[in-house]
Amino acid sequence: MDAILLQVLNGLDKGGAYALIALGLTLIFGTLGIVNFAHGALFMIGAFCAVSFNKLLTFSIKVKDESITFFDAYKEVPYLEVWWGDTGKAIIDYSVPLSILIAIPVMLLVGIIMERGLIRHFYKRTHADQILVTFGLAIVLQEIIKHFFGANPIPQSAPEIVAGSAAIGTWLGLSDNLVYPWWRLIYLGFSLSVIAAVFAFLQLTTFGMVVRAGMHDRETVGLLGINIERRFTIVFGLAAVVSGLAGVMYTPILPPDYHIGMEFLVLSFVVVVVGGMGSLGGAVSAGFLLGILQSFASMNEIKSLIPGIDQIIIYLVAVVILLVRPRGLMGRKGVME
């Protein structure tokens, strides 16, 4: 029982990341009709927003180390600490959550530039062309990041206060051994609230209404004389922000490197396909579902039963789904079947 709950929890944070990327992917596909292979790169750029923000905050100066008295020793102290003492320290400690503030405008800008500069010209091209050009873009983006940040993963740490684990077992009256890292719990909550925010935005605003109508029937909305073009740009920006934020918050869980985006992209595409192309609810539920499945498949008991299953479970599910139910779990009938 505990083991099962733990696996579910383990899957949820990864599932959250899948869900957020897949949400953006399917939103872009549903409204703009674009297959965006550069979406993983947006996740990666988000992650590197956090890295750069942290670098910025920890910009250091050499000062004399007072604790060593035998000889003159120097240590690096971030300017922030020099200037503001403990406040500065706290700010650095909270660099990952704080970089959200940076990531939102940056990602919005990146998204808008991408749509205006490139994606826009591919609305009328074939899906194959779209896949290829965004694939090229993804390579370019990740190589640029590699040029500036190197090829090695750069670990980021969560704030001190949530560095430990939450005693979930004790709360629920189960075994005390059942603990779960705080940050992962936060990630889960964070992804759920971003998802909720996106859904609220689409459900409650007129803008969202038009977008949903567009996902349902693109041509008609275009005929209604609504300025689709500008909305497309905003939708793309929104999707970029969503996956960028997913990337920012994931850095303490998995140290980002330049090809983290590609790995998540392939999986997220699979998630979209499983959930149903163009279905927002499908993307979210499939994201969590596959995250959990993957975590179960990496249990030792299961791995010893079917070796290697943890490596391929997601793809396997996708293959089965595409064959028996091509429109995905929640896809509408007739959409891209």
Binding site: H127, I131, V266, F269, Q311, I312, Y315, L316, M336
Partner: peptide, 14 residues
């Protein structure tokens, strides 16, 4: 279409 592309991608990754 893209489903084919993604399926082949999935198999290669497997």
């Amino acid at each position: 279409g893209i489903y084919f592309s993604i399926l082949t991608l999935a198999f290669a990754q497997m």
